[in-house]
């Protein structure tokens, strides 16, 4: 009887957005009289940070600092339609809608600035700090604050824009299954290292090294939040979680956090996260959806590591001590 070590690898891809498309999202952007920007949506922030990311996308597109943007979302009386936050679609779909709306608003903003500066709008650029400059002659400039005031009170222009993003729905061909499930895919590869106690069947995940390719890390700290939390959930799914421990038998389902098992703060694997960025052709600034796929590769990586450690295959999730012990016993016979 001993503690045995093993390691396993798994590699995956994951589609961004609702399967087969057909899932629209809209956004509206407008400026206040003093040059702050409102993004209006009906998308839902589940805690992943949708509001913050939409603010950064709008700010980047208009050319202002993020703290000049306010996101107002998820009120059906004010926000235009969004299909919802699921299928790793939030950032991709809403982000594209915000870019389109912000571009339209930016265009009006530049036109008003052009009138104020008596130049062509196409000769103007933003400095990202809240000013509009003449290209090649940056001493000739106007603040966005002043442009917005002028638009509102002098020139009667609405600095605003509408955005809509829709990937046309694909219908699978009946006999061949020809279809377009998604337009872009995120990728991951995980190496997990485990210890298995062959007397108790208990598995300890020592380390997980996760490499994720997510198109573009729009806010690296927030991406890290998703990926670290997702990696934890993947391990949790691999070893602990189910509402029906003896599926398909319906008995013994947990009804609280004492019975429904998940790793606690004392059960964490040492987690390493590496991010690669291959911008997607149709993602907002190249982004793909990282939120779901980050929890997938740990399950098979842990299962493969368990095999590497003790030589038994557990092909049923979760990989409980009971299943490992039964397999070890079967192997011994």
């Amino acid at each position: 009887m001993a503690i045995r070590r093993g390691r396993g690898v798994a590699a995956i891809n994951y589609p961004t957005g609702m399967n087969l498309g057909g899932d629209p999202t809209q956004a509206l952007v407008h400026s206040t009289p003093t040059g702050n920007f409102m993004v209006t949506l009906s998308s839902v922030d589940l805690g992943q940070g949708m509001k913050q990311i939409m603010a950064q996308i709008c700010a980047e597109t208009i050319g202002v600092p993020t703290d000049r943007v306010v996101v107002d979302t998820a009120d059906t009386d004010t926000g235009p339609h969004c299909m919802g936050t699921f299928a790793s679609r939030g950032t991709h779909r809403a982000g594209n809608a915000v870019i389109q709306a912000a571009r339209e608003a930016r265009q009006v903003m530049l036109e008003v600035a052009a009138e104020e500066l008596e130049v062509n709008a196409s000769d103007l650029e933003t400095d990202g700090q809240g000013n509009i400059l003449v290209k090649g002659a940056p001493q000739k400039s106007i603040s966005i604050f002043d442009v917005a005031l002028s638009a509102h009170f002098k020139r009667g222009r609405s600095i605003s824009g509408r955005g809509m993003f829709l990937i046309p729905r694909s219908y699978p061909e009946k006999e061949t299954g020809a279809m377009k499930p998604s337009t872009c895919y995120a990728h991951a590869c995980t190496v997990a290292e485990v210890e298995v106690d062959d007397e108790t069947g208990e598995v300890t995940v020592l380390t997980v090294k996760n490499v994720f390719e997510i198109g573009r890390a729009l806010n690296p700290k927030m991406v890290e939040q998703q990926l670290v939390g997702g990696s934890w959930m993947g391990i949790s799914h691999a070893l602990y979680e189910t509402t029906e421990p003896y599926y398909p038998n319906r008995d013994h389902g947990g009804t609280d956090f004492n019975q429904y098992l998940m790793p606690g703060p004392g059960d964490l694997a040492e987690t390493e996260i590496i991010v690669l960025e291959r911008p997607s052709a149709d993602g907002p600034y190249g982004a793909k959806g990282p939120g779901e796929m980050c929890a997938n590769p740990q399950m098979p990586a842990v299962a493969n590591a368990v095999f590497d450690a003790v030589g038994v295959r557990i092909d049923t999730l979760p990989i409980t001590p009971e299943r490992i012990l039964r397999a070890l016993k079967a192997q011994a016979n």
């Binding site: 805690g47 939040q225 670290v228 939390g229 990696s231 934890w232 959930m233 998940m262 964490l268």
Partner: peptide, 10 residues
């Protein structure tokens, strides 16, 4: 219990 962060950040 935290379901989002994986505890390490906390």
């Amino acid at each position: 219990i935290c379901r989002c962060t994986g505890y390490e950040p906390i």
